Amino acid sequence: MNEKNDDITFSNLGLKESIIQILSKLDISTPSLIQQKTIPEVLQNKNVVFESETGTGKTFAYLLPLIQNLENCKSNEDKIIILAPTYELASQIKLTASQVTSLKASLFIGGTPIKRQIEVLKDKPQIIIGNPSRILELIHLKKLKTSNVRALVLDEADRLVSVEIADETKKLISTIPCDAQFIACTATLNQNTKHTLKGLFSNLSEIILPKEDILSRKITHYALFAESRDKISTLKSFILAENPEKVLVFTSRADQVENIAQKLQYKKVDCMALHAKTDKKERKAAIDRFRNGKCRILITSDLASRGLDIPGITHIVQMDLPSNEDFFVHRSGRTARAGKSGINVVIGDEYEMRKYAALEKKFGLKVYPKMLYKGKLVNPSDIQDFSEE
């Protein structure tokens, strides 16, 4: 069965009443398909790797059963470790965990003073969340014991076993007890990632859901032509024309994030910037302002295309197309979450429009060409109608 059964409840899946009541307060009553498939497997302490599109509830799919198993442990020394490739995703996981359990969850990310994190460990948190390098550092310093780790999660596993950080991830895994439970999840599980994971862990149960075609069914795709030198002014005109409720703007070049934000701000367009070199406090402030609607435009590099789960993003604007096609999927997937619809706009030059056409064919999308004309976003065929008015 590959279709969601709306008659299945969280209780049917084996979750206890206290967790179900918390979910009800969060207005979550029916498990998503990936949750229906994954929760019973994790509750049975199976090693699981699963793939599901963005916005389908992957975090709760592993977090709810792991928390239940951890709460049932007799020892408060037992813990789980959740690895994430970015600060944003790790922070999101911690926030999600704090919503559903009183167990202490703590964040351990590079760039934050390690002495402060060592102090946090003295409170014996049972849910450890962070990036591989910092957690591995704490293990090597003998400040974080792994002998009582019950489960290890790789969230966005494809990134965690990518060339850039694979060594650190593998070294950390080598410190975890052999009988610990292993879980890996991602929205884009390719054969290389799958092969690597099977080499690291045995007896993996695979849960690979059929694509729900969120990219084509829930997201409307626009193509807006602009030469490179005109892209920022085109972005400004698009924002003025569409007046989007909440828009996330992506650029592949981290050094362009501030440039775009400053030029928009100069034109009196309120926006915030977020990139790899942004200070942790500034990152949090930017995301918080964007989340609560105090600022409706966030400019970012691809660091935020993974795991940035902010409700109500109505528009995605891509100022270029990433070299990695998976990043296009993750960028676009920041909108149309939790059953809603959204708009994805690519502002590109001639080369990027050809590349976009190739993605249109590969992913089975329908891309609508658009133009800015007299302060409005229109179809190219509409311009003749405007001129005859």
Rank of each mutant, 00 (worst) to 15 (best):
L308T: 13
M319W: 06
E325F: 15
I313D: 00
S332K: 04
Q318G: 09
I316A: 01
E325S: 15
M319R: 00
T335F: 13
V329C: 13
H330C: 07
S323A: 12
S323W: 13
D326G: 11
L321R: 00
L308C: 10
T314Y: 07
V317N: 00
D320N: 15
R334P: 01
E325K: 15
V329M: 11
N324Y: 11
G312D: 06
T314K: 14
Q318R: 05
Q318C: 11
I313G: 02
D309Q: 11
L321F: 01
I316M: 10
I310D: 06
G312I: 08
R334E: 05
P322S: 10
R334W: 09
H330F: 12
R331I: 13
P311H: 07
D309S: 08
V329K: 05
G307M: 12
E325M: 15
R334D: 11
I313S: 01
A336H: 01
V317D: 02
D309N: 11
D326I: 08
H330Y: 14
A336M: 12
F328R: 02
A336Y: 03
R334C: 10
R331N: 09
D320F: 14
R331T: 11
F328Q: 05
I310H: 03
V317F: 04
A336L: 08
T314I: 06
I313M: 07
D320E: 12
G333T: 06
P322Q: 07
L321C: 03
R334A: 11
V329I: 15
A336S: 14
F327N: 14
T314H: 10
F327V: 15
G333K: 05
D309I: 04
I313F: 03
S323T: 13
L308Q: 09
I313W: 00
D326L: 04
V317Q: 00
V329S: 08
P322M: 10
I310L: 11
F327Q: 12
L321G: 00
I313P: 00
H315W: 05
N324T: 09
